[in-house]
Amino acid sequence: MKKRALIMMVCFLICKVAISQTPQETSDLRILSFDEWSNKYSTLDDKNKIINAVSICELTIDGKRCLDNPVEVKLNADSKMEFKNLLWYRWDIQKKRWVKESSPKFRIDRNKKNGAYYTAINCPGVYGFFCPDEKLNSGLNIIAPSGCKILTVSVAQKNPSTAYNALYEKPTSKINIPVSDLQFAGFIDVEIIDKAGKHYGLKKNLIGAHIDLRNGFDRCESMNLKISRNDLIEKQNLSNK
Protein backbone atom coordinates (compact mmCIF):
# COMPACT_ATOMS: atom_id res chain seq x y z
CA MET A 1 0.00 0.00 0.00
CA LYS A 2 2.81 2.35 1.00
CA LYS A 3 4.71 1.42 -2.18
CA ARG A 4 1.71 2.26 -4.31
CA ALA A 5 1.33 5.58 -2.64
CA LEU A 6 5.01 6.32 -3.23
CA ILE A 7 4.74 5.47 -6.95
CA MET A 8 1.68 7.68 -7.30
CA MET A 9 3.47 10.52 -5.59
CA VAL A 10 6.49 10.19 -7.89
CA CYS A 11 4.15 10.17 -10.94
CA PHE A 12 2.43 13.27 -9.65
CA LEU A 13 5.73 15.08 -9.19
CA ILE A 14 6.93 14.10 -12.67
CA CYS A 15 3.67 15.38 -14.17
CA LYS A 16 3.99 18.62 -12.29
CA VAL A 17 7.57 19.14 -13.47
CA ALA A 18 6.54 18.31 -17.05
CA ILE A 19 3.80 20.92 -16.93
CA SER A 20 6.04 23.61 -15.57
CA GLN A 21 8.88 22.95 -18.01
CA THR A 22 7.12 22.84 -21.35
CA PRO A 23 9.76 23.45 -24.02
CA GLN A 24 9.07 26.88 -25.33
CA GLU A 25 8.96 27.76 -29.00
CA THR A 26 9.74 31.33 -29.85
CA SER A 27 7.88 33.49 -32.30
CA ASP A 28 8.56 36.93 -33.61
CA LEU A 29 6.42 39.30 -35.59
CA ARG A 30 8.38 41.89 -37.48
CA ILE A 31 6.84 44.87 -39.21
CA LEU A 32 8.66 45.15 -42.50
CA SER A 33 9.87 48.49 -43.70
CA PHE A 34 9.04 49.64 -47.20
CA ASP A 35 12.63 49.03 -48.32
CA GLU A 36 12.50 45.49 -46.98
CA TRP A 37 9.39 44.37 -48.76
CA SER A 38 9.19 46.48 -51.92
CA ASN A 39 11.88 44.66 -53.88
CA LYS A 40 10.66 41.24 -52.83
CA TYR A 41 6.91 41.40 -53.11
CA SER A 42 4.95 43.01 -55.93
CA THR A 43 1.71 44.46 -54.65
CA LEU A 44 -0.43 42.40 -56.97
CA ASP A 45 -3.28 40.17 -55.97
CA ASP A 46 -3.95 36.78 -57.51
CA LYS A 47 -6.10 38.48 -60.17
CA ASN A 48 -3.08 40.53 -61.17
CA LYS A 49 -4.59 43.76 -59.88
CA ILE A 50 -2.49 46.29 -58.06
CA ILE A 51 -3.26 46.73 -54.39
CA ASN A 52 -1.96 49.39 -52.07
CA ALA A 53 0.02 48.21 -49.10
CA VAL A 54 -0.76 49.82 -45.77
CA SER A 55 1.36 47.67 -43.51
CA ILE A 56 3.28 44.46 -44.06
CA CYS A 57 4.66 42.15 -41.43
CA GLU A 58 6.38 38.80 -41.19
CA LEU A 59 5.84 36.12 -38.59
CA THR A 60 8.69 33.70 -37.90
CA ILE A 61 8.31 30.75 -35.59
CA ASP A 62 11.06 28.64 -34.12
CA GLY A 63 9.97 25.24 -32.91
CA LYS A 64 6.49 24.72 -34.24
CA ARG A 65 4.70 24.92 -37.54
CA CYS A 66 1.90 27.20 -36.39
CA LEU A 67 1.07 28.92 -33.14
CA ASP A 68 -1.76 27.72 -30.94
CA ASN A 69 -2.22 31.27 -29.76
CA PRO A 70 -2.08 33.69 -32.63
CA VAL A 71 -0.37 37.05 -32.66
CA GLU A 72 -3.11 39.64 -32.61
CA VAL A 73 -2.74 42.53 -35.00
CA LYS A 74 -4.66 45.77 -34.75
CA LEU A 75 -4.47 48.55 -37.29
CA ASN A 76 -5.82 51.89 -36.13
CA ALA A 77 -7.85 53.90 -38.58
CA ASP A 78 -9.69 57.05 -37.64
CA SER A 79 -13.38 57.56 -38.09
CA LYS A 80 -12.78 59.65 -41.16
CA MET A 81 -11.73 56.32 -42.60
CA GLU A 82 -8.31 57.21 -43.74
CA PHE A 83 -8.00 53.55 -44.60
CA LYS A 84 -11.13 52.40 -46.34
CA ASN A 85 -12.14 48.82 -46.84
CA LEU A 86 -8.87 47.32 -45.87
CA LEU A 87 -8.27 43.69 -46.67
CA TRP A 88 -5.89 41.20 -45.16
CA TYR A 89 -3.60 39.27 -47.50
CA ARG A 90 -0.94 36.57 -47.21
CA TRP A 91 1.99 36.31 -49.61
CA ASP A 92 1.69 33.09 -51.57
CA ILE A 93 5.21 31.86 -52.24
CA GLN A 94 4.13 29.59 -55.10
CA LYS A 95 1.92 32.09 -56.92
CA LYS A 96 4.17 35.02 -56.04
CA ARG A 97 1.03 37.01 -55.45
CA TRP A 98 -0.90 38.29 -52.46
CA VAL A 99 -3.83 36.05 -51.63
CA LYS A 100 -6.78 37.31 -49.66
CA GLU A 101 -7.21 35.86 -46.20
CA SER A 102 -10.36 36.25 -44.14
CA SER A 103 -11.46 39.88 -43.95
CA PRO A 104 -10.20 41.76 -40.93
CA LYS A 105 -12.88 42.85 -38.48
CA PHE A 106 -13.49 46.57 -38.26
CA ARG A 107 -14.73 47.96 -34.99
CA ILE A 108 -15.51 51.54 -34.00
CA ASP A 109 -14.30 52.42 -30.55
CA ARG A 110 -16.51 53.63 -27.74
CA ASN A 111 -15.88 57.28 -28.51
CA LYS A 112 -17.05 56.64 -32.07
CA LYS A 113 -14.14 58.69 -33.23
CA ASN A 114 -11.66 56.02 -34.05
CA GLY A 115 -11.90 52.58 -35.46
CA ALA A 116 -9.52 49.74 -35.97
CA TYR A 117 -9.05 46.63 -38.05
CA TYR A 118 -8.38 43.43 -36.14
CA THR A 119 -6.85 40.22 -37.35
CA ALA A 120 -4.61 37.46 -36.07
CA ILE A 121 -1.69 35.41 -37.40
CA ASN A 122 -1.10 31.77 -36.52
CA CYS A 123 1.33 30.48 -39.11
CA PRO A 124 4.66 31.79 -40.33
CA GLY A 125 4.66 33.93 -43.43
CA VAL A 126 4.38 37.43 -44.76
CA TYR A 127 1.06 39.20 -44.26
CA GLY A 128 -0.29 42.64 -44.93
CA PHE A 129 -3.13 45.08 -44.81
CA PHE A 130 -3.99 46.37 -48.27
CA CYS A 131 -6.57 48.65 -49.76
CA PRO A 132 -7.92 48.27 -53.25
CA ASP A 133 -6.75 50.73 -55.87
CA GLU A 134 -9.68 53.01 -56.61
CA LYS A 135 -8.07 55.05 -59.34
CA LEU A 136 -8.76 52.43 -62.00
CA ASN A 137 -6.81 54.11 -64.72
CA SER A 138 -5.25 51.92 -67.28
CA GLY A 139 -1.82 51.74 -65.78
CA LEU A 140 1.56 52.68 -67.08
CA ASN A 141 2.66 51.87 -70.62
CA ILE A 142 6.38 51.52 -70.94
CA ILE A 143 7.70 51.68 -74.46
CA ALA A 144 11.25 50.65 -75.22
CA PRO A 145 13.36 52.57 -77.79
CA SER A 146 13.14 51.18 -81.26
CA GLY A 147 15.05 47.97 -81.68
CA CYS A 148 15.07 47.31 -77.93
CA LYS A 149 13.07 45.01 -75.73
CA ILE A 150 12.18 45.12 -72.10
CA LEU A 151 13.60 42.38 -69.87
CA THR A 152 12.64 43.47 -66.37
CA VAL A 153 10.68 46.23 -64.73
CA SER A 154 10.82 47.33 -61.16
CA VAL A 155 8.62 50.06 -59.65
CA ALA A 156 8.38 50.94 -55.98
CA GLN A 157 6.73 53.93 -54.40
CA LYS A 158 5.23 55.11 -51.16
CA ASN A 159 1.98 56.90 -50.39
CA PRO A 160 0.24 54.74 -51.37
CA SER A 161 2.81 52.01 -51.13
CA THR A 162 2.96 49.87 -54.21
CA ALA A 163 5.62 47.73 -55.78
CA TYR A 164 5.89 45.92 -59.09
CA ASN A 165 8.74 43.62 -59.99
CA ALA A 166 8.57 41.63 -63.22
CA LEU A 167 10.92 39.52 -65.26
CA TYR A 168 9.70 38.90 -68.82
CA GLU A 169 10.55 35.52 -70.20
CA LYS A 170 9.74 36.80 -73.66
CA PRO A 171 11.16 40.32 -73.86
CA THR A 172 8.84 42.76 -75.57
CA SER A 173 9.02 46.31 -76.87
CA LYS A 174 5.94 47.58 -75.01
CA ILE A 175 4.51 46.55 -71.70
CA ASN A 176 1.69 47.73 -69.52
CA ILE A 177 2.05 47.52 -65.78
CA PRO A 178 -0.93 47.89 -63.49
CA VAL A 179 0.40 50.83 -61.49
CA SER A 180 -2.06 53.69 -61.38
CA ASP A 181 -1.03 56.34 -58.93
CA LEU A 182 2.52 57.47 -59.53
CA GLN A 183 4.78 59.45 -57.24
CA PHE A 184 7.52 61.77 -58.44
CA ALA A 185 9.95 60.28 -55.93
CA GLY A 186 8.93 56.72 -56.77
CA PHE A 187 11.60 54.35 -57.96
CA ILE A 188 11.60 52.90 -61.43
CA ASP A 189 14.11 50.75 -63.25
CA VAL A 190 13.73 49.06 -66.57
CA GLU A 191 16.23 46.62 -67.93
CA ILE A 192 16.42 46.72 -71.70
CA ILE A 193 18.25 44.60 -74.20
CA ASP A 194 19.11 45.83 -77.66
CA LYS A 195 19.60 43.85 -80.84
CA ALA A 196 23.28 43.50 -80.10
CA GLY A 197 22.48 41.85 -76.80
CA LYS A 198 23.69 44.76 -74.73
CA HIS A 199 21.85 45.41 -71.46
CA TYR A 200 20.73 48.85 -70.38
CA GLY A 201 19.11 50.40 -67.38
CA LEU A 202 17.63 53.84 -66.77
CA LYS A 203 20.07 56.65 -66.06
CA LYS A 204 17.65 58.23 -63.64
CA ASN A 205 15.54 56.14 -61.34
CA LEU A 206 12.98 58.68 -60.25
CA ILE A 207 9.58 58.34 -61.81
CA GLY A 208 9.39 62.13 -61.91
CA ALA A 209 12.42 62.21 -64.16
CA HIS A 210 10.44 60.44 -66.85
CA ILE A 211 6.80 61.41 -66.45
CA ASP A 212 5.26 64.84 -65.93
CA LEU A 213 2.89 64.45 -63.01
CA ARG A 214 2.06 68.10 -62.39
CA ASN A 215 -1.48 68.00 -63.70
CA GLY A 216 -2.31 64.60 -62.36
CA PHE A 217 -4.23 61.95 -64.24
CA ASP A 218 -7.89 61.39 -64.64
CA ARG A 219 -9.68 58.12 -64.50
CA CYS A 220 -9.16 55.80 -67.43
CA GLU A 221 -6.33 57.94 -68.65
CA SER A 222 -3.24 55.93 -69.37
CA MET A 223 0.23 57.07 -68.55
CA ASN A 224 3.00 56.56 -71.05
CA LEU A 225 6.66 56.28 -70.44
CA LYS A 226 8.43 56.34 -73.75
CA ILE A 227 12.05 55.59 -73.13
CA SER A 228 14.60 57.13 -75.43
CA ARG A 229 18.16 55.91 -75.88
CA ASN A 230 19.32 59.03 -74.05
CA ASP A 231 17.56 57.82 -70.90
CA LEU A 232 19.58 54.63 -70.85
CA ILE A 233 22.90 53.66 -69.45
CA GLU A 234 24.65 50.45 -70.33
CA LYS A 235 24.84 47.87 -67.62
CA GLN A 236 28.22 46.33 -67.26
CA ASN A 237 27.74 43.58 -64.81
CA LEU A 238 24.54 41.65 -65.00
CA SER A 239 25.60 38.82 -62.79
CA ASN A 240 24.50 40.87 -59.78
CA LYS A 241 20.96 41.17 -60.99
Binding site: T26, S27, D28, S55, V71, E72, N76, F83, F129
Partner: peptide
Protein backbone atom coordinates in the same frame (compact mmCIF):
# COMPACT_ATOMS: atom_id res chain seq x y z
CA UNK B 1 16.36 39.09 -21.73
CA UNK B 2 15.54 36.97 -24.78
CA UNK B 3 12.47 37.78 -26.84
CA UNK B 4 10.18 34.79 -26.57
CA UNK B 5 7.04 35.85 -28.30
CA UNK B 6 5.25 38.70 -29.99
CA UNK B 7 1.88 38.97 -28.29
CA UNK B 8 0.30 41.59 -30.48
CA UNK B 9 1.00 44.46 -32.83
CA UNK B 10 -0.73 47.83 -32.96
CA UNK B 11 -0.21 49.44 -36.32
CA UNK B 12 -0.63 53.11 -37.06
CA UNK B 13 -0.99 53.89 -33.35
CA UNK B 14 -1.73 57.62 -33.10
Amino acid sequence: GKSVKTISAFLNQP
